[in-house]
Structures are given as C-alpha cells and as structure tokens.
Design a protein around this nucleic acid. Structure first.
Lengths: 188, 188
DNA sequence: ACGATCGATGACAGCGACTGCCATCAGCGT
DNA sequence: ACGCTGATGGCAGTCGCTGTCATCGATCGT
C-alpha cells in the first residue's frame, strides 16, 4: 500500500468536474477542488497547468486520432474527404461518452474563460489537421483553408449533436454539415 | 482646464501597446502601464475589463461594419457572397492601418493568453455574421456554417496579409482565399 | 538488511490580476 | 454659496499561480 491514495490526478479531475457542475467554474476555487480530492492546492497545479486545463485533458488523444486517421486515409481521397475522415473518427471517439461530453459542454458554455480555452484547443486541432494535410502533399493555402473549414464543420456538427434530445449519430452529422457547406460554397 | 489630463483611456492604451511591444505581454504589469500613463492601476481597470482587452478595443467597430455591410448587401447575393462582402469591408478597414495591425499581431502571436482572446473575438464575429445572414433569410445550419467558413477564410487571408512583405490588397486576398475554399470543397 | 536516492506531496511565502469600498475634489447646475 | 456628479486615488482583500524547501514512504544498489 502506497503512502498516498492512488490516482491523485483522477480524483482532482473528478472533484473539479463535480464542483464546476454544482457551483459553476468561476465560483469554484482550486483550494476547494483540492480539498475534495483530499489534496492541497499546490498538488493540483502539479497535475494541471491551470484551473481550466482539467476539462481539456482528453484533447491530446483527440488530436492524435485525428492526425493518424488523416495520415492513414487512402491517397485517392482529396483534401476535404481526408479531413472529413479524420473528423468523423474524432467524432466517433467523442460519441463513446456522450453523457460526459454534454455535461462538460454545459460547464464550458457557462464560462467565457472556458470558451476561450476551448477555442484555442480547436485552433490547435486545426493546426494539426493542416499539418497532416500538408504531409499528404496538399499545399498552402489549401491545407490551412481545408483544415479551418473542417474544424468549422466539426464545431457546427458538435453543437447540433450536443443539443439534440434524440440521439443522433455524430459522424453522420459531420457528413451532413460538410455536405451543407459544399452546397453553400457552390453558391446554393 | 480640467482637473486631470485629458484622454486617460487613450494614454493607457498607448502605454500598454508600447510596453507589450518592448517587454512582451506577460512581462508587463498593469501597474507599470498605469504609471507610464500617469494614472493608477485602479483606473486602468475602470477603462478596460482586463489586461488583454486593451488590444481589442476596435473589435466592436469591426463587427458593426461587418454586420451592416452584410445587411446592406444586395439581396440577389447568396449567403457566401453576402458574407464575403462583409468580410472584405472589414478587411478594408483593417488595411487603413496596416502598420498598427502588424505590430498588434506580433504582440498577440507571442502570447498564448492573447491568442485565446483573439479567437473569442473572432468567434464573436462569426456569431454576429451568422445572425446577419439569418436576417437575410438564410436558415441554420447554413447560416452558422457560412459564417464559420467565412471567418476561416478571413483568418487565413489575414495571416497572409500580415506576413507578406510586399503590400498586398487585403480584400483581394480574402476573395482569393474564398475562391480557394470553393475549389477545395468542390473536390478540387 | 541497510543506507542512499527518488518521487509525490505538503507547507509557506510571494507576486500579480482583479474587485469592492470609501475618500477626494474640480466643475456644473441651481 | 451649496450640493451633486464623475473621474480618480488609496487601500484592503481574494484568488490564480509559482518558487522553494521539507517530508517520508518506496525502491534500488550493494
């Protein structure tokens, strides 16, 4: 048996998630989170860079999945379709824990600070996607543009997926949103 | 003659801009900014919501111009073209002070915190654009999608405009980027 | 088995962003 | 002249976050 209870990071994340949900992000102090996890404020900051980062711990895995899927997409696929494949894979991953994603999104939507953090995570996703496209031989500005547009599609589809009461298929929503974008850019 | 020197807000903004440029955003304290402007820290926060907001004072005017231009665009124009008209107008406004925009962008690029703030301003621009499109009768998700894609085009064009040494026409870059997006979404 | 080392944590001081509250004081209207 | 207003100063306080050092089981080498 260890000197400390195991999984400190997990306990901190769980405590933070619960408190953000109960009182809201701004009304929760890091000291309170740490106390609920049976730890100290200092230890919280050893596990998470800041108070917001707790909610975005899974972002790296999502980015890796996105990049890998784009890299492994069959070469005949054009830029948007390769991007779409990656985004659908990411969507499928999120879909595995829809309940959690909804609660998380409710917390984020209630705080401007958290929305800022979410946007920079999405921008990081866009940058990674653009790089993955460049690896496929797509040149700039097409690569950046496709990546940004892809993330835009993802954002819109995600919003719909989270809001809908009847449980829709997320990858399908991504596909539909992309089709809609294609229609709009084609001038209707 | 007034009790205080005039244009406190302007002096604060100028002092902040100069110090952010010299030492960087994180290495500058609000107390230093206030001191250079001949005021106190407390007064800084009466004029600006926070330390970052100084650099985004003009965002409201940009949004208004965007929305107005979209609203006044001739009705035969489809969603993307109406959006493009608005974005080009916004681009033209920024172009009036290219030097300033470049310095500002250099400061922002050097700070993660400032990049976050910039992204939420762009998101706010996207939301306003989507609303303006809805006012033109465009339905969701087409309105949101067009708005997000439009902002994506704007971001890419802005980046190119700021980086280029040879002074390019910003509205023209927006048009070119939009054409590129159209090509990509059409499957090349 | 024993001592050196390590790694996760606690304890504490300190900085800087931001807020609330009250005081100050020139100008302005009555 | 008098009181009100509005911009500012001053000050205390909270909270996010960091640097530093101490603590003490666990583990490794011998």
């Amino acid at each position: 048996m260890g000197r400390w209870e195991p999984n400190a990071r997990g306990r901190l994340a769980q405590a933070a998630f619960a408190l953000y949900g109960e009182r809201g992000f701004e009304q929760t102090t890091v000291a309170e989170i740490a106390a609920r996890a049976g730890l100290t404020e200092r230890t919280f900051f050893r596990h998470f860079a800041d108070k917001r980062e707790v909610l975005f711990a899974g972002a790296d895995a999502l980015r890796e999945l996105l990049v890998d899927t784009v890299a492994k997409a069959p070469m005949p696929l054009g830029p948007i379709d390769a991007a779409a494949a990656g985004l659908e894979a990411a969507g499928a991953l999120l879909q595995e824990s829809r309940e959690l994603a909804q609660q998380r999104q409710a917390i984020i939507a209630a705080s401007a600070e958290l929305r800022e953090r979410e946007l920079i995570k999405l921008a990081s996703l866009a940058a990674a996607l653009a790089e993955a496209l460049r690896q496929r031989g797509v040149r700039d500005p097409a690569a950046s543009l496709t990546a940004e547009a892809g993330i835009a599609v993802f954002k819109v589809a995600f919003e719909r997926w989270v809001q809908e009461t009847n449980q829709q298929d997320f990858p399908r929503l991504i596909q539909e949103s992309l089709d809609e974008l294609k229609a709009v850019t084609a001038g209707r």
